[in-house]
């Protein structure tokens, strides 16, 4: 298995505040990885470390086969990124921004840039200041994809987009990943969006990875259990929050439940809610 991205026990503090507290995750090449977490969970810090804007205090980072403590400039040429806010030069048109960014990427594909802009309905002759927030994000995606990056880092890019634009954005990301075989790392707190495009999902909370895996596996691993009477946790099961338990999928079908027990499947949103709450580590009732 080839990893496009692998973080092991990565830590990062900002003064006394712990942003990443031993975060580990792995993203396989050619997949879209959904990185779910609440606001302040550490998603943006992770993305900023991966884009080379920040460095990690501790832990190992492996990006596109290179193990490093911080992302060097050379490696950044193989990575495209789109962040929540686009801080373009307001006086530049989309075309000028393309020309400017192209100078930093030897692999820049001008035709692809113009095709993407057309697909995303971005008017390249307008100044960045004249574009709506959504169009700026789409322009950001076109700029990120035009150098044909091997890894695409998306930090809550669809925040502020209307549902149609969001769908178009995500569809394009899916299509590009499929067509080019590149990898996308999508950070978001919009569960339905992640469920729609991601092959695998990781849920981060308080700077730690709570759970990661393919979406069907997650849904099979985490369920709600309503017992007729209090019962000790069966072997291999773990209480996540209240009556939400996790266990390997095969244990759920082989476990011997007392009569009257109801085992309910959960939506990905329920799973997210169960893992992304502050008292998630509280013992089960």
């Amino acid at each position: 298995m080839t990893f496009a991205l692998r973080l092991t026990e990565v830590r990062r503090r900002f003064g006394k505040a712990v942003a990443l507290d031993g975060l580990s995750l792995s993203v396989q090449q050619g997949e879209i990885y959904g990185f779910l977490g609440r606001n302040g969970a550490g998603k943006t810090t992770t993305l900023r470390i991966l884009t080379g804007v920040l460095h990690a205090d501790a832990g190992t980072i492996e990006v596109l086969g290179q193990q490093l403590s911080r992302v060097p400039v050379e490696l950044k040429r193989r990575i495209g990124s789109v962040s929540q806010e686009q801080h373009f030069y307001p006086w530049m048109t989309g075309r000028e921004l393309g020309r400017f960014v192209a100078g930093f990427y030897p692999t820049w594909d001008q035709l692809e840039f113009e095709r993407l802009a057309k697909v995303l309905d971005v008017a390249l002759d307008k100044r960045a200041a004249e574009l709506s927030g959504g169009t700026r994000t789409k322009l950001g995606l076109a700029l990120a994809l035009a150098p044909r990056p091997e890894l695409l880092l998306l930090d809550e890019p669809t925040t502020g987009l209307d549902p149609v634009a969001r769908r178009e954005f995500n569809d394009l990301v899916s299509a590009i990943v499929k067509e080019r075989g590149c990898t996308a790392f999508l950070s978001s707190h919009l569960v339905d969006e992640v469920q729609q495009v991601a092959h695998r999902v990781g849920i981060i909370h308080s700077g730690k990875m709570r759970i990661e895996g393919e979406v069907p596996w997650l849904l099979e691993s985490v369920r709600r259990v309503k017992l007729p009477a209090p019962l000790p946790l069966p072997a291999g099961f773990e209480a996540v929050r209240g009556d939400v338990w996790r266990a390997p999928p095969e244990l759920w079908s082989t476990a011997a439940w007392p009569e009257g027990t109801v085992v309910e499947p959960l939506s990905l949103e329920d799973v997210f809610l169960a893992f992304a709450r502050t008292d998630a580590l509280a013992p089960a009732a």
Binding site: T51, G52, V73, H87, Y89, F104
Partner: peptide
């Protein structure tokens, strides 16, 4: 103008 944030993600130190 915070445009240095735009430069920071580009491959230039």
């Amino acid at each position: 103008g915070k445009t240095q944030l735009f430069l920071e993600v580009l491959p230039i130190s």
